[in-house]
Amino acid sequence: MATISSHIAVMTFPFSSHPSALLNLVRRLAASAPTVRFSFLSTAKSNQAIFSGKQYDNIKPYDVSDGLPEGGGSRGEGRLLVDRYILSIWWRNGCDAMGVPWIALWIGGPCSLSIHIHTDPIRSTVGDTGMAQNAEQTLKFIPGMSKIQISDLPEGIVDHLEMPIAHALHIMGLKLPGATAVVLNSYEEIDLTIITDLKTKLKKVLSVGPSTLTSSSPSKPDESGCLPWLDKHKAASVAYISFGTILVPPPSELAALAEAIEASGVPYLWSLPDHLRHHLPQGFVERTSTRGMIVSWAPQLQVLAHTSVGIHITHSGWNSVLESISYAVPMICRPFFADNMLNCRMVEDVWEIGVRVEDGILTKSGTMKAIELLLFNDKGKK
């Protein structure tokens, strides 16, 4: 092994796609800089998942606390576990205190990053009346945000300021101007006005995305045979359904979506965890078996790249949006939380490459309208 010339500590937010996105970037940096050692700090669960079966000469994982009591305590899920981790992290101000240069990777879109940097001006503009009273007000005072509404903002920007994650993101927005550079999982042309504005507020902005297009092979093989199944269908005819790894629609919406898919007659590939299938209408799987496929996991990038996929029904998380854009797949968005609403607004009203489901909720009639518009209507083809 080459003599180590320098050492970089890599600290990740160990949830959702954050660790794998950061490791993907570090993996490329490590290959280009073999004399640099990278220490990858994350929770044991996260490290085990992304480093399983993989070894790198100059990247070594180190486990840090997940914020739960030693040897006990509920593991928690979703936002609860995220909040516990945020409250426990020890490195928030470490780099500043030690005078160490630091670089931040933002795996979301430029729009959501801009929101966190402009949090205080947004609060000053909205005042004390809160989100509910200003839901339709636009952020035209922020470059590139003229179509973004107050109702599109993540929790904690206007209301619920006491939430740990909201507080941490606010602090992040205030500290980012001190970073040596901010790396974006995006490309400049998609949000040129926003990125140009960010460059006036940050020392250096580096757009290196979409990162998933430079990732290694899928984390798991296509054991369910999604790709051979897609080979049997006509171009741009299949509805691909996936809502990410954190949240899924409530049972009533899963049932409504299934009813819409069945009534529309479209072929579908649905990535749905096994433990949620009992929420589907009785007999749905059997009645649609000749034109549908339900799997517990799908190789999303390869699926979206397939010519038979015509629409992506999604939560509008940033990776999913970028991947859909990369392969020119229109989106039907059902946003949940965090940056989902912002991304959905950009998809529908700024880029005009998809639609939000009616009232933001999956209903049989609203979903059928969206499918009809994107798959069979001239506007959808455009």
Rank of each mutant, 00 (worst) to 15 (best):
F38M: 11
V329A: 03
P154W: 12
T180Y: 11
K201L: 14
I86N: 00
I165T: 07
E358H: 11
K232H: 10
D222Q: 01
P164Y: 02
K140P: 00
N134Y: 09
P19Y: 04
T119Y: 13
P221F: 00
S308H: 04
F15P: 04
K382S: 15
T288E: 14
R75G: 14
D96F: 11
F337A: 10
Q149Y: 07
V248S: 14
D191T: 03
T125H: 14
H7C: 13
S42I: 01
T129A: 13
V158D: 11
G71I: 06
E70C: 04
I190F: 08
V208F: 05
K220W: 05
A33Y: 12
L374C: 07
T180L: 14
V309S: 00
L375C: 10
L192V: 07
E348Y: 06
G317C: 03
D191Y: 09
S264I: 05
L257E: 09
D128G: 08
L272F: 02
M145Q: 11
H233M: 14
W270T: 02
G178C: 09
P273T: 00
P19C: 06
H170F: 13
L105V: 10
L206K: 05
N185L: 04
N319V: 01
E155I: 03
L176S: 06
S219P: 03
V10T: 07
S39R: 10
S308G: 06
M368L: 13
I361Y: 09
L254G: 02
K54I: 07
L373F: 09
I294W: 02
I165R: 08
D152A: 07
V350A: 09
C344A: 15
C344K: 10
S365C: 06
T307D: 14
W106Y: 08
L81P: 01
G94C: 05
T43C: 02
G156N: 08
L192T: 09
H233W: 15
H312V: 02
S42Q: 09
M145P: 05
G244F: 01
V205E: 02
M163W: 08
G317M: 01
A33W: 07
W229H: 08
E253Y: 04
K379L: 14
S224T: 06
N58V: 10
H116Y: 15
Y268T: 01
Y56T: 05
I361Q: 13
R123D: 03
D66T: 04
W318L: 07
P154G: 08
P228N: 11
G127H: 12
L192D: 13
K382E: 15
Q302I: 00
N377G: 13
V26I: 15
A370N: 11
P210M: 01
T212V: 06
C111D: 13
L22W: 05
H306R: 01
R92P: 00
G108A: 14
W270Y: 06
T193G: 05
P177L: 10
I115S: 04
G366A: 10
E372C: 07
D152L: 08
L25G: 06
V285L: 12
K382N: 15
I171D: 09
P110V: 01
I313E: 08
T138M: 13
W91F: 14
I371S: 08
E286I: 06
N185K: 03
M1F: 10
P121A: 02
I246P: 02
K220G: 02
G130N: 10
R287C: 08
I4C: 14
I332M: 07
Y187N: 07
L153W: 07
